[in-house]
Computed example of a mutant assay.
Amino acid sequence: MSVKTDVNEIFEVKEKKAIKVNSEWKKVKGFALGLIIPAVLLIIWEVAVRFSLLDAYVFPAPTTIVQKIIELANEGTLWGHVGVTFYRVAVGFLAGMVAAVVIGSVVGYFKWFEQLMDPLIQAFRSIPSLAWVPLFILWMGIGEASKVMLIAVGVFFPIYLNIVSGIQGVDRKLIEVGKIHHFTALQTVRRIIFPASLPSFLVGLRSGVGLGWMFVVASELMGASQGLGYLLVVGQNTYSPELIIASIILFALLGKATDFLLKTLEARALKWQDNLQNQF
């Protein structure tokens, strides 16, 4: 009996290792697959500039842009600009997320509160982001507070909408099951509403962080002296397209990195779901 148990344990360990290796291989394969199109585009871009199919002054070659990034890094200014921009996005994202979670949860759970608050929130959502800039400058000056507030406003709405949609989309039959088992209101929220609305909430986080990187550009046009948005302005004023494109690429890389982190969090948090994503 013990021999059979040992054999079964060995097979289970081997099976777990095989599954883990297969999972890691799929991740590497997916990462490599995602690099194909960017690599092809960069090669075409480089060749087009080298053979004068594109004006090098208007569209600098990728190698020139990489050299510019390395130059900024060697000067020691790059990390300061990246750090300031990342700090603004992080603080604005956290502020907008907290406000969206609190208000969105109440609006989604209580019908009367939705009727009270949602029309006003939807009206504010229709206001273009740049329309807030002069008002925030007037209220808070051109310091960090106005920049963070603008990012928080941009982050708030997608997270709010997804939370409200997620809570209101919970299957009513699940709520009835909770009542049958005599769940309290807290137990219903913790064991039914929260898990059921979690996918929508995580999608809202990814949308929010994406808008956070967009809004930080507008915020850094408000008299900033540091940040990647500031580098865009410097590149425009000094007629340096390589600096402008380098800043845009850095925005793209940072945005992709934060989205990857949230996507990884989403995959781990929703591992229990039996869906198409977890099947392959």
Rank of each mutant, 00 (worst) to 15 (best):
Q115D: 14
Q115L: 10
M97A: 13
F86P: 04
Y109C: 03
L94A: 13
W132A: 06
V155M: 06
P158N: 07
E75F: 13
N74I: 15
R125P: 03
V98E: 02
A152S: 06
G76H: 09
T77R: 07
A145H: 06
W139M: 04
I163V: 13
F156R: 10
G108M: 05
A73C: 11
I103W: 01
V153E: 09
M149K: 02
L150D: 08
E114P: 05
I163C: 05
Y87C: 07
G169Y: 07
V133K: 00
V170K: 00
A145N: 04
M117D: 10
D118P: 12
A145F: 03
W132N: 04
E144Q: 03
L116H: 06
A90M: 03
I142T: 15
P134T: 05
V153T: 15
G76N: 08
V89A: 00
M97K: 08
I167V: 11
V155C: 05
E75H: 12
M97E: 11
A99T: 15
P119E: 11
A131E: 10
Y160M: 13
L116E: 09
V82T: 07
P119W: 13
W132R: 03
A100N: 09
E114H: 11
F110G: 10
V82A: 08
V148H: 04
Q168V: 14
V84A: 08
K111R: 12
F93D: 09
V91Q: 05
P158M: 08
T77P: 01
M140G: 11
G166N: 03
D171C: 00
T85Q: 01
D118L: 15
P128H: 02
V102P: 02
M140H: 11
T85M: 01
D171W: 00
V84H: 07
V102F: 09
R125F: 11
W79C: 11
G143T: 09
L135G: 01
W79T: 13
V98H: 00
V102S: 03
L116F: 15
G154L: 02
V155L: 10
S146K: 05
M140W: 15
V133N: 03
F157G: 00
E144V: 06
I142E: 10
V153N: 09
V102N: 06
L130C: 06
I151F: 12
I142S: 13
A131C: 10
G154N: 02
V101W: 01
V148Y: 01
L94F: 10
R125A: 12
M97Y: 09
G104L: 05
E75N: 13
Q115H: 12
W132C: 04
G76F: 14
V155Y: 09
I103L: 02
F157I: 08
F124I: 15
Y109S: 05
L78D: 11
W132T: 11
V164A: 00
V106E: 05
